[in-house]
Amino acid sequence: MARITIREAISQALWEEMERDPSVFILGEEVGVWGGTYAVTKGFYDHFGAERVRDTPIAENAILGSAIGAALVGQRPIAELMTINFAFSAMDYIVNQAPKLRYMFGGQFRVPLVIRAVGGGGRQLGATHSQTPDAIFAHFPGLKVVSPGTPEDAKGLLKSAIRSDDPVLFIEHATMYQVRGEVPEGEYLIPIGKSKIQRQGSDVTIVAYSKGLELSLKAAEELAGEGIEAEIVDLRTLRPLDMQPVIESFQKTNRAVVVEEGWKSYGVGSEVAARIYEQAFDYVDAPVVRVAQKEVPLPYNRALEQAALPQVTDVVAAVKEVLR
């Protein structure tokens, strides 16, 4: 086992898949000569060349539209959105084209496309650059939405995404590139659409992913000090959503908190809570509590921004509320 960062894990996944399969190429803003604005593709341009690490104009429709076209004729493009906030400039391709072309043309097409996008708040970038809009994308059948919270999952899931014949939106969190963790040696894949128990516990179920996982793991440590053992289920994939580990854990603990960084209304927590009520109503001992972002556009000021974002203390408080 090697101990690496999420940045290194993503970088390794891209590198290994490009070495393995010549039809894989990267395109996006500043992915080449610059090396990626989050340095994920540093060194790629020199090694793989300008054809396979393609700097694009700042034009999201051109990036995603051309990636879809190349995927239709058999290439495996990885399109990078510098931030997920720019996805809104090319929403048509993410929700209205890539996920629909196969179905709408009677199964004739394949769109083996990966869209990598960096999301998340906490970097004082202001309201238009700090969003966690993951739930919006998970709304659309035909798209797969993946958002890992550990280096091991980031590497294994990205490799699966690149090999998938379906379009995958792979969402990374801007403040988690330095998160370290153990990664297996050698080649491995992690299947898309499988949730995972990241921490075992018997008192309460915390359902989380991405930044929510980081907050939940810290909260669980704090709670353990008070004798409360939380079980953490990491969704890892938002669509297709694997509820089985969530339901199994909930049937054991009868209490659940859902943690996400996006806004609460119509969010991941709403979906998970609804499914718990639908699938395990007889096991409910307390209402499910959702921890999420306050319903404001994220402000620039650090204190205000942190007040709007979910914190470890919010998770701890939510757990205590469901245990009351």
Binding site: A62, G65, S66, A67, I68, G69, A70, A71, L72, V73
Partner: peptide, 11 residues
């Protein structure tokens, strides 16, 4: 139109 550019890019 961008998809068309992509078909040509694939080629």
């Amino acid at each position: 139109l961008p998809i068309a550019a992509g078909l040509a890019l694939g080629d």
